[in-house]
Computed example of a mutant assay.
Amino acid sequence: MKKILFSLLLLLGLSSCMAKTQQQPGQINYNNVTVNWKATDQRIHFDLRAKTTGWIAIGLEPSFYMKNAKFVIGYFDPKTGKPVLSTEYGNGYTSHAKVAADQLLSDIKGSQKEGWTELSFSLPLSSAIANFNYSIKPGEKYKFLVAYGANGAKDLNSYHAFAEGTKVVLIPAKS
Rank of each mutant, 00 (worst) to 15 (best):
P62N: 01
V168L: 08
Y142S: 06
V169N: 06
R49L: 13
Y65N: 02
F71P: 01
Y65E: 02
G59D: 08
K70P: 00
H160G: 00
A128I: 06
L48K: 03
G152D: 07
K3F: 06
G90W: 10
K113L: 12
G152V: 08
L123G: 02
T94P: 01
L48P: 04
G74Q: 06
Y65T: 00
A173N: 02
Y75L: 06
M1Y: 06
P138W: 10
T166W: 05
N131G: 04
Y30E: 10
Y65C: 03
L48V: 14
E164V: 10
E114L: 04
P62W: 00
Y89F: 14
A128R: 12
I108E: 05
F46L: 14
Q22Y: 08
V72W: 02
G90T: 07
A173Y: 03
K141T: 15
V146D: 00
E114Q: 14
P78F: 03
T53G: 06
G13D: 14
K51Q: 11
A150P: 01
K113E: 10
Y93V: 00
L5W: 10
V33F: 12
Q22T: 13
M18F: 12
V146T: 08
G92W: 07
T53Y: 07
N68C: 05
V33H: 08
K141S: 12
F132H: 05
